[in-house]
Design a protein around this nucleic acid. Structure first.
Lengths: 214, 214
DNA sequence: TTAAATATGTACCAATTGGTATTTAAAAGA
DNA sequence: TCTTTTAAATACCAATTGGTACATATTTAA
């Protein structure tokens, strides 16, 4: 049963039986599963069903559960979570935050993907065996918060944020909202309700006189 | 080995071997464990060690894992989480929110208990077997948000909040911050950093002219 | 002293966990 | 055709999961 899923057009012919699965599609299915149930809540049995691969094939192609999750994480960051980089590129701190939170709500409440953020919820409370992943996700979150802080530092230097701004606290404010939004989304909050909520959160965003809200 | 842990001073003498454990202390240990590792991440083996009881004794005293967690939840709500009711009793919406978030930070970052909120993180992402607990905790969170909304409705009627206030969105704002704080706390955020963050979140809390910030 | 009642402790259960050894199938090259 | 190479599929592994049966210990009441 060779369906040649992952053969590029002019692929070099390799010897041996060709894989019956598509690498990227399988990883996508794994992401969907981990995203839904978290690292600990996802069993190999669930992955086997979702990826439509048998266990030895998964281990041969992606390594063990931990290695597979790491590859899923990469895919998540460069895929669903790619909007973060775009948001940080917005011209003002206000627009950065507005775009970041708005896009987060859009992603975390959309119909065709699981609700909630995989990096927030993938291994939040878990047993000792998932402790390494817990730390890894913590580091990812810390990196995002650090990215916001650095962006706000630039905004401060540009006179976009008041010189007296506590950029550390501002970054934590935005990160906290994002993490809360993740919990809200996974608990069933609607996109509309969360967008209204964001409006409130942004009402008093600090700005200097020469940078007004649009 | 009868240490008579749970014999009240003038207890009625019951027949049979007296329990070697204290009901409340054992439940406290169970709470600590579930709080740390979540529902799914807590194994019976971990509970046995923490509660210093053997498995059949646990089952006899508290029922199965699910029943035990339910009793732990009750204890959590009436114990560590009791500040919620106090906060809702504050005289103005602003003070309600300030007290609620400040106390939440205090609880979720204190040294002698696990970090993060058990109701937020106890079963956020989990496998199908914990789905019931996931729903149950979602309901708890929804109840809190509803409590905030009702409190804000009263504030609105009292002229404490502007008549045009979107109390639904305000309640979701506060609930989202609380949930985000839980994630932050479990990720190692300091009490001080979170208190600074709360200040920012409260800067533009809506108020009418006859109710000013203290 | 003995029976009834209740708790503890050991040993066990089937099912599931993550992970592999081994056999079989399908392709390319000689 | 036949060997080599690679993947799929079945069957298995020890360890752990939540949950129990059963024997033993400790108390009170008769």
């Amino acid at each position: 049963m060779n369906t040649e899923h992952n053969q590029p057009v002019n692929a070099v012919k390799r010897r041996g039986r060709p894989p019956a699965f598509n690498q990227d599609q399988a990883l996508e299915s794994a992401m969907q599963t981990f995203w839904t149930f978290g690292y600990e809540g996802t069993s190999m049995a669930a992955l086997i069903e979702a990826m439509k691969m048998n266990k030895p094939s998964i281990y041969a192609a992606f390594g063990n559960k931990e290695a597979l999750f790491n590859q899923v994480l990469d895919k998540y960051v460069s895929g669903p979570s790619a909007f973060v980089k775009e948001a940080l590129a917005e011209p003002t701190a206000y627009l950065v935050v507005k775009k970041f939170l708005t896009q987060a709500v859009a992603l975390l409440t959309q119909q065709d993907t699981p609700r909630g953020c995989m990096i927030v919820q993938g291994a939040l409370s878990c047993g000792p065996e998932a402790a390494m992943m817990q730390k890894k996700l913590m580091a990812y979150r810390a990196r995002l918060e650090e990215g916001l802080k650095q962006r706000f530092e630039i905004a401060k230097q540009q006179g976009d944020l008041p010189a007296a701004s506590n950029i550390q606290a501002l970054a934590k404010y935005v990160a906290t909202l994002h993490q809360g939004i993740s919990v809200q989304a996974s608990s069933g909050a609607s996109k509309e309700a969360l967008l209204e909520m964001i409006e409130i959160a942004l009402i008093n965003w600090p700005m200097t006189v020469n940078h007004t809200k649009p």
